[in-house]
Amino acid sequence: MIARTVGFEWDAFGSSFAPLLEGAVMTVVLTVVVMLLSVPIGVGLALLRLSRHKVVRAIATGWVEVWRATPVLLQLFWVFYVLPALTGITLSPFLVAIVAFTGHVSAFLSETFRAGIASIRPQQRQAALSLGMTPAQSFIVVVGPQAWWRILPAFANTWVSLFKDTALVSTIAVADISYIGLQLRQETFMTLEVLTAMALMYLALGYPQAKLADWLERRFGVKE
């Protein structure tokens, strides 16, 4: 460790990127798959929480609160260790990551969606119903799209958070950027170089996502 006081090894820094890029593919796949699952589940949970039936509302609320009030690292470990012990079902680390993060993100998104749906004036729904639309059509054609653009900034924040939080899957040996980076550091002892390369990798991927979301909001935000 003392030997590592001699400045920055540019070669080691440069050669970190090829393996990290493989990890980046996993990070992106995890983020995209979790989001693709979490959006419809989040919408479903939001609608259940807006249901007229008290029992349905209570169950959905309870489910969401459990996922919101516990740390995602614990959720990951719980699905990894406890779920197999309880049910006998053992999932691959990748599937554990998908299940735990989808549970976590869909709970957060459901809150965002619920607020977004509630922010649309009830008269908009009534106008859709008055045109002979069914309640489902009113939601899909009129209320949902308006709520979607309204919650886009919050949604983009959740997206970028998820992208970064997926680093936690390294704790259950899913080969994402963090797992590969931390392995690389252990093997080469190039802590400074590898961690800097990891940081640049996350930044290079995360920054455009955040900017894209900003642009979407400016471009498509609903003006009334």
């Binding site: 004036r121 008269q123 009534q126 106008a127 008055s130 002979g132 308006q146 609903v222 003006k223 009334e224």
Partner: peptide, 15 residues
Amino acid sequence: RKRVGMVFQNFELFP
């Protein structure tokens, strides 16, 4: 409702 048209005080066009 398909046979009853409705016009609202605040228009309620879909923005």
